[in-house]
C-alpha cells in the first residue's frame, strides 16, 4: 500500500545483486559457512518478527520450533525420505505443534505468554537431550544427508554438495520467505496483526477475533521457524539439542531487536550482520555475549525499532528538514 521511493528500490536491487554475486567475493569457506548460516537464521528471525514484532506476542519458544524442523528433517531424511518431501513435512509438523500448543498458551497475555512459551521451549530442549532413541540424546543426530539433487533432463542434476549450491538454495528460501512475509504484512490481513499488537480491546470491538488472529500469526511463524530448522539440519548435516535451546531463542531475539522489529528489512539485517560481527569478535571470547547483552539493553531503551528503525527515523528527519527548507 505504500509505494517505496525510487532510491529505496535501487538500494534493494543493489542488495539483491550483491547477494546473487556473493560466492564470487566471499573471502574463505569458513566465512561462506557463516553467511549461509546467517541466511538460515534470517528466515527464522523473519518468522519471529511476525509474532513478536507485528503481532506483539513475545513467543520465546521459537528455537523449539526451529528444533522441530531440524530434528524432523534429520529423522526423515535419515530414514530415506527425500529432502524435498521432508522439508515441507517438518515445517508443517512444526506449524501443527504450534496449532496445538497455541490455544492454551495464547489464553495468557504479556509476560505470562512469554514465560509459558519459554517453559514449553525448555521442555522441548530437555526432551531433545534425553529421548535418546529418537533424538540421539545429548549427542544429537549425525550424518544427515545433504538436500536430494534435483534432476534436470538432458543437463544432469542440481546437487547441493558444495557451498555455492547450498548458498543459492538457502537464498531462494529466504527470498520466498520474504515474498510471503511481504504479502502478509502489506495487506489488510496483515493489518489485523498490527491491530492486535497496537490495541487489542479496540481490535475486538471492530470485529477482529483477536485470539484467532494471534493463533494464525503464531502458526505461520512456527512454520517458517521449522523451515529454517530443516534447512539447517540438511546443510550442517548434524543436529543436537542446542538447536532447540532457549539460548538460540535469545540469539534470534538479539538479531531481531538489534536489526529492527516490525520491519521486513530489520530481521534480515540483524540475522546477517550480527553472526558475522560475532565471528569477527571471536577473539573476545565470553566478552562477546557481554557486549551483545549491553547492546540489546541499550537498543531496546534508545532504539526500540532497532537499526532499521533508527535509519528510517534519520531518513524522515532529513526529509522533513529538506521540506522545511524548500
Amino acid at each position: 500500500m505504500i509505494t517505496k521511493p525510487l532510491h529505496t528500490k535501487l538500494l534493494y536491487g543493489f542488495i539483491l545483486l550483491a547477494a546473487l554475486l556473493l560466492p564470487l567475493y566471499v573471502p574463505d569457506p569458513y566465512m561462506f559457512q557463516v553467511v549461509i548460516m546467517s541466511l538460515i537464521f534470517a528466515i527464522a528471525v523473519l518468522a519471529m518478527n511476525l509474532i513478536i514484532g507485528f503481532t506483539g506476542q513475545a513467543s520465546l519458544a521459537h528455537a523449539a520450533f526451529f528444533g522441530f524442523g531440524a530434528y524432523g528433517v534429520a529423522i526423515m531424511t535419515k530414514a530415506g525420505i527425500s529432502f524435498w518431501l521432508a522439508l515441507p513435512a517438518a515445517a508443517s509438523i512444526s506449524a501443527l505443534i504450534g496449532l496445538i500448543i497455541g490455544p492454551p498458551a495464547l489464553r495468557t497475555r504479556g509476560s505470562y505468554f512469554a514465560i509459558v512459551t519459554l517453559a514449553f521451549g525448555v521442555i522441548v530442549w530437555i526432551v531433545a537431550g534425553n529421548w535418546v532413541q529418537v533424538t540421539g540424546g545429548h549427542n544429537g543426530i549425525f550424518g544427515i544427508p545433504r538436500p536430494t539433487p534435483i534432476p534436470i533432463p538432458f543437463i544432469g542434476a542440481i546437487e547441493f554438495f558444495d557451498q555455492p549450491a547450498q548458498y543459492y538454495l538457502v537464498l531462494v528460501f529466504l527470498l520466498l520467505t520474504l515474498f510471503i512475509m511481504h504479502r502478509i504484512v502489506y495487506s489488510i490481513f496483515g493489518l489485523t496483526f498490527m491491530a492486535v499488537r497496537n490495541n487489542e480491546p479496540l481490535a475486538d470491538a471492530v470485529g477482529i477475533n483477536t485470539f484467532t488472529t494471534k493463533l494464525i500469526s503464531f502458526v505461520i511463524a512456527n512454520f517458517f521457524a521449522g523451515l529454517a530448522g530443516g534447512l539447517y539440519a540438511a546443510i550442517i548435516g548434524a543436529v543436537s539439542p542446542s538447536v532447540a535451546a532457549h539460548l538460540l531463542t535469545f540469539n534470534f531475539l538479539i538479531f531481531l531487536i538489534l536489526g529492527g522489529m516490525a520491519s521486513l528489512a530489520g530481521p534480515v539485517v540483524g540475522a546477517f550482520a550480527i553472526p558475522i560481527l560475532m565471528e569477527l569478535l571471536q577473539d573476545l571470547g565470553h566478552f562477546r555475549m557481554l557486549f551483545f547483552g549491553v547492546l540489546l539493553v541499550a537498543t531496546i531503551i534508545y532504539f526500540p525499532r532497532g537499526f532499521v528503525g533508527a535509519v528510517r527515523q534519520l531518513n524522515d528527519k532529513i526529509a522533513a528538514r529538506r521540506q522545511a527548507k524548500s
Partner: peptide, 21 residues
Amino acid sequence: HINAFIAAIGALLVLESAVEV
C-alpha cells in the same frame, strides 16, 4: 511490558557472560 522483558534478557546475558569472563 514486553520491552522490559527483552531488556531483562539483555541483562541476564550480561551477568552470565560477565561471570564466564
